[in-house]
C-alpha cells in the first residue's frame, strides 16, 4: 500500500477520534493559535507554566482540521507535559514525525508540524523573543 494508508495507522486515528488534552485552559500563562490557510487546519495551544516559568505544568489544545494535524496536536500535548520550554524549542520536525510513528507524505508535513510550531511560537511570544499574531505553516 502507498503512503496514504500508512499515515492512518491506529494511533493517528485514535488520537484524532479521541483527542487527549482537548479544550482550553482557564488561566493559561500563554495561549497561541496557528493555521494552515490552504488546508483550513487550525490549532490553539494553551499552556500553564510552573512557578519556575520554565516547566510546562498544564497544556491543552483545541482546533479543527485534518486527522494528521489534530492527532499530531494531541500526541504533542502528551509529550510536552512536564517538559521545559528549552526542551520544547529543541524539538524539530523529525521529532514530530517520530512521535507520530508513521511516514508522512511531503505534502502533509505542514499539517503534522502545525501544533509544534504553534507551541514554540507561543512560548517565544511569551518570553518576548518574537512578535506575531498567528502562526502559519506551509
Amino acid at each position: 500500500m502507498g503512503l496514504g494508508s500508512d499515515m492512518y495507522r491506529q494511533q493517528i486515528l485514535d488520537h484524532y477520534k479521541n483527542p487527549r488534552n482537548y479544550g482550553e485552559l482557564e488561566e493559561p500563562t500563554f495561549s497561541h493559535t496557528g493555521e494552515n490557510p490552504t488546508c483550513g487546519d487550525t490549532i490553539q495551544i494553551d499552556v500553564v507554566l510552573a512557578d519556575d516559568e520554565e516547566t510546562i505544568e498544564h497544556i491543552a489544545f483545541s482546533g479543527d482540521g485534518c486527522a494528521i494535524s489534530q492527532a499530531s496536536a494531541s500526541l504533542l500535548t502528551q509529550q510536552l507535559q512536564g517538559m521545559t520550554l528549552t526542551e520544547l524549542h529543541e524539538l524539530d520536525r523529525d521529532d514530530v514525525i517520530d512521535m507520530l510513528g508513521v511516514e508522512i507524505s511531503p505534502m502533509r508535513v505542514k499539517c503534522a508540524v502545525l501544533a509544534e510550531k504553534v507551541a514554540q511560537d507561543g512560548a517565544k511570544i511569551h518570553t518576548g523573543d518574537i512578535e506575531i499574531d498567528t502562526t502559519q505553516t506551509e
Partner: peptide, 8 residues
C-alpha cells in the same frame, strides 16, 4: 477532512 480523504 478532504485532505485525509484524498490521501486514502
Amino acid at each position: 477532512h478532504a485532505h485525509d480523504l484524498s490521501s486514502i
